[in-house]
Nucleic acid binder design. Structure first.
Lengths: 211, 211
DNA sequence: ACGTCATCATACTGGACAGTCTAGTCTGAC
DNA sequence: GTCAGACTAGACTGTCCAGTATGATGACGT
């Protein structure tokens, strides 16, 4: 309201983001059908008409929200992966990767997004496909690339890099994620438990696939 | 309509089951909010009033459906577990257990139930808790009992039976289940792939925890 | 000064739907 | 034959809600 000055699009742009923010909250907590467009309008401090001029329909707004959240989360997990230095650091390297990924994926907002998208597979199969691609599939892809390097250095035995990547991914993610899906955000491991879980997962992985 | 003969409750009982059957279909394919009580009535060949005299409300009917499905599925997975004979059969024994469990859990109806319940965690947290207890938790409990026996025979090393049970469970279930949640029933592995997957999971498990 | 464009508040349309009510039918029991 | 209880078709109530329409305000560029 105050510094709307220089740029003519600024006003519109702010509203746009306010709508997205409000819509994200409301969709995440009420689901697709449970969401009321009037509520989104009032929460974003904008008239209903403005919501419709910006986004066209409830469905389009929903798709936009889910698409942008999945993309952002993927980027946060995967930006700037460090290189493995000394071979002896392999275990610590895998732990660091896993801890970071698990911490992001178990954020309440992302858990809720996952629940929402899974619940709407029937209505929006494309969204779930996109979430799978930008989530687990992308993670497994990154891991595959890492493991190809390890493979060349002789640090990986007994499986193709791609297969090893999938096992690693689910060893780390499966238990916390599946618990959280059903038992709610309170079931997400705290920091200590998370570290212990990841350490065990990495140990099991290396017993099966390590040098 | 024809052979309603001897038992006075038969008529009512048939309707009751017809309603449950129809409601299961409709809830599973449309979700809770997306479900229309008129449709359930007409699909079960019953008047709307009858639906309400039998079940009281939409919510009560939903809870009934989900509760009964989770119980039934759990019973089907766990009824009559065979004993392990010769120690040498350990690998085959674990494979058989895992294959059976995975086959049941990946049935389209149960996958859809899982999606539905996950999507409704916000509205019905109790249902999700029950599904977790009668699903993964129960499976892990059974495995724990099995592994305690193995432990006594010296066939299990390096972890508590309960921890080993959890790792085993998710090694087997995680990848297929998570793919199916998001990619739809078409992503469920066929028989060959399922067998290969289970064989690999058991091998990894035994490498880490076996004798 | 004037037009344009984003926005506003608010009313409205049209349809969906949970749950109730009515008035009457069918069936099996006594 | 009559009664009770299960059932039926369908109308009805009240509410909710996506999306549109209206008419006004205020800021900007020219």
């Amino acid at each position: 309201m105050a510094q709307t000055g220089a740029r003519p699009w600024a006003r519109s742009d702010e509203k746009h983001r306010a709508i997205l923010r409000a819509a994200r909250e409301v969709f995440l907590s009420n689901g697709y059908l449970g969401t009321n467009m009037d509520l989104i309008a009032s929460r974003s401090g904008v008239s209903k008409q403005t919501v419709y001029t910006h986004f066209g329909s409830k469905e389009a707004l929903f798709v936009e929200i889910v698409g942008s959240m999945t993309g952002d989360a993927g980027d946060r997990v995967h930006h700037e992966r460090p290189e493995l230095g000394d071979d002896a650091e392999l275990e610590a390297y895998l732990r660091a990767f896993a801890e970071r990924q698990l911490r992001i994926v178990t954020e309440p907002e992302l858990l809720q997004l996952r629940r929402l998208v899974i619940g709407e597979v029937g209505r929006f199969p494309e969204l779930a496909k996109v979430l799978y691609e930008r989530g687990p599939q992308r993670a497994i892809g990154e891991l595959t690339a890492m493991f190809e390097v390890l493979d060349e250095r002789g640090l990986l035995t007994g499986a193709e890099p791609a297969a090893a990547a999938e096992w690693f991914n689910w060893l780390v993610m499966a238990a916390p994620l599946n618990r959280a899906m059903m038992l709610g955000d309170a079931a997400v491991p705290g920091d200590d438990e998370l570290r212990r879980h990841v350490a065990d997962a990495v140990r099991i992985f290396l017993t099966a696939f390590g040098p």
